[in-house]
Simulated assay, not measured.
Amino acid sequence: MAFEAGLDLLVFANQQTYAPAIVEDTVDNVVNLVHAGRITEARIDQSVARVDALRPKS
């Protein structure tokens, strides 16, 4: 839902109930959204570009 709402970055706090596969499960969910046509690879690329633009350049 976060990506469909336009979020570019997710932050996880994995302390209350530790879920060792949280990252893998999230990636699988995003892949499934792409396969289902709910988000596009271009949308992911746009998010990556926006987040990358915020990173300090050395």
Rank of each mutant, 00 (worst) to 15 (best):
E41F: 02
D28V: 03
Q46A: 15
P20G: 11
E4D: 07
S58K: 08
D25S: 09
G37M: 04
A49R: 12
S58Y: 06
Y18Q: 07
L33H: 10
A53N: 03
I44M: 08
P20S: 13
G37I: 05
D28T: 11
D8E: 04
P20M: 09
V11R: 12
L33K: 15
A49Q: 13
F12A: 07
T17H: 12
S58F: 08
L10A: 08
V31Q: 14
G6Q: 09
F12G: 01
A13N: 10
G6C: 05
V34C: 11
V23G: 00
K57C: 03
Y18I: 15
Q16P: 00
P56S: 09
P20Y: 12
S47G: 14
A49T: 08
F3R: 14
V51M: 06
S47Y: 01
L54K: 06
A42V: 05
V11D: 04
A19Q: 13
E24L: 12
N29M: 12
D25A: 11
I39C: 04
Y18L: 15
T40Q: 10
A49V: 04
L10I: 10
L10V: 06
A53V: 02
G6K: 09
N29V: 03
N14D: 11
A5K: 15
D52P: 00
R50N: 05
A42S: 11
T26W: 01
A36I: 07
E24F: 09
D8T: 01
G37E: 02
N29A: 14
D28P: 00
Q46D: 15
K57Y: 05
L7W: 11
M1E: 10
L9H: 14
A5I: 00
R43A: 13
N14A: 06
R50G: 01
L54R: 09
I44W: 01
